[in-house]
């Protein structure tokens, strides 16, 4: 069973790292933030698996703390940043990705 759980943890880590691509590509700020949200959830899953694999009860506390604070970053994003401004920011930076982002957001 331990082997199976380890494989499960590895697959979760892979799915987490796939999320990195979405953080990098965007295009919108909301997409990046959503990917970060997925990181939080998957992180909780991995910590739970590790807790069972290493048989260390203390790790459940870490999973608990992670899940308590899962929404904080997205709360800050929603309450403090404007979407349009990200477009203005990006245009001054003029990277290829971000101009593509503007087009997409404008649609």
């Amino acid at each position: 069973m331990a082997d199976f759980l380890t494989i499960a943890a590895i697959v979760l880590l892979i799915s987490l790292l796939l999320g990195l691509i979405r953080v990098w590509r965007g295009p919108g700020a909301a997409d990046r933030m959503l990917a970060a949200q997925l990181f939080g959830t998957t992180g909780v899953g991995i910590v739970l698996l590790l807790a069972v694999i290493t048989d260390n009860g203390a790790l459940f506390d870490i999973a608990l703390v992670l899940s308590l604070l899962a929404a904080v970053a997205i709360l800050a994003f929603v309450r403090r940043l404007k979407l349009q401004q990200s477009a203005a920011d990006a245009s001054s930076l003029s990277t290829k990705n971000d101009t593509a982002a503007n087009k997409k957001e404008g649609q």
Binding site: L20, V23, W24, V47, L66, L81, S86, D89
Partner: peptide, 25 residues
């Protein structure tokens, strides 16, 4: 690597999750 500051911040948040996992390991 990110020129877009927002992207850099999200990457940093993501890095934090991975760092917590690394400390666990």
């Amino acid at each position: 690597w990110s020129a877009d500051l927002f992207r850099a911040i999200v990457m940093f948040v993501v890095f934090g999750v991975l760092l917590a996992l690394a400390w666990l390991r």
